[in-house]
Write a protein that binds this DNA or RNA. Structure first.
Lengths: 211, 211
DNA sequence: GTTGGAACAGAACATTTCGTTCCGTTTGAG
DNA sequence: CTCAAACGGAACGAAATGTTCTGTTCCAAC
């Protein structure tokens, strides 16, 4: 289909990626989708899936792991970004919306049992997140905590309207709004009222990986 | 159990409300929940459900209808609110978060076929929504359209963390943030950057009632 | 006290969904 | 030509779930 890497092994190599891409698309659209939907979308039979992954769980773990890796990658890229911190922070969140890492990590959590590797990656991600928070803190509105990031991203990525492109567009729209709300207000008088209730805690967030 | 309205008919009358309350709680927590979960939560048998509703769909329609009614009620209350429009608007959205009307209307849509009555109520709700928008427009940040309300509420109510009380608390937290972002910025220099992409349209929203 | 029927609990049933296995076929390398 | 990797998709079995059905309870009218 794509190129002339002749041979059955070439097709297999191509299928590796085709299947992963299909799985990403399908499970992002519907985390509870059946595995047959992945095969259909990839244009392969079911056995092509089971040749690569021993079970549905294993496929989901792979997707989650890839998502986490992507998240970590974007985080490191952000920490290496020498532009103004607030600008870099905004670009960071927008890139996470584009990559839709939340749908691959948080939303898939609970549908499978995490491996130690996953826990390690998650810890690493939290670490980087904290570093970004520390660097951005002085620009953030007082009262915003690092745990807010995840919850806000989750809200944003809960939006689903129209096709994929339109959904993405709208997510950026509301992220833009949210980013302004997260920014430390200037000396304007009315801005920055007290946020009600305690902020989300780290424990509350990680608890969902067990449910 | 509760009071001394003796007789089997009294129990039946009480069950009417118990069942509805249970159904609300169950389907808000999980729109795809089995009907047996409702019976369990209500502490009744399954036949107590089927005595009142001919099918699961009918129960869902009832919940949706009640949710819409509640939405309309809050809208009218808001239009009759003589306080400063922005204050009334904020109270409006907060009350909708408390009532969780979105989970009963939007999120249940698509799981059943709407009746003409439902369409009428939905049209009425949209009308009132428009009236509230008109009254609040001058306080809103330019670029915000009436269709934003629904999408924003949907984001907010997508939050689910901890028990019901905690979830509600966090929803109000992020609604507070969002409300500030929706407010027309003062004369501050940096505020109010352009929102990317076209806003959600009315058609996009109603299309989901058919899917 | 008797009894008819409304109301109910929950087992039983039929259907659907879905993960997984299995069998027969294709295909390309040696 | 041959063999096995790779594959397509039907088949299978388990689980979930909407609905129906059976037997039981309990109030109210006579």
């Amino acid at each position: 289909m794509t190129k002339a890497l002749s041979g059955r092994q070439a097709q297999a190599a191509r299928n590796d990626e085709v299947i992963l891409a299909a799985a990403r698309a399908v499970f992002i659209a519907d985390p509870g989708a059946p595995i047959s939907a992945v095969a259909e979308r990839a244009g392969v039979g079911i056995s092509a899936l089971y040749r690569r992954y021993a079970s549905k769980e294993e496929l989901l773990r792979r997707l989650c792991s890839d998502g986490l890796a992507r998240y970590i990658e974007e985080s490191e890229k952000t920490l290496a970004d020498n532009r103004e911190p607030w600008l870099a922070f905004g670009a960071f969140l927008h890139s996470l919306v584009d990559a839709d890492t939340n749908s691959l990590t948080q939303r898939l959590a609970g549908t499978f049992t995490p491996t130690p590797d996953l826990w390690r990656d998650a810890a690493r991600a939290a670490e980087l997140n904290q570093a970004i928070y520390a660097r951005t803190k002085e620009y953030l509105r007082p009262g915003i905590v690092v745990e807010d990031f995840g919850v806000i991203l989750e809200q944003i990525t809960s939006i689903k309207l129209g096709d994929e492109a339109r959904t993405n567009q709208l997510r950026h729209r509301y992220l833009t709004l949210m980013l302004e709300a997260m920014h430390r207000p200037g000396e304007r008088p009315g801005g920055g009222s007290e946020l009600p209730g305690p902020p989300p805690s780290s424990d509350e967030l990680t608890d969902r990986w067990r449910a």
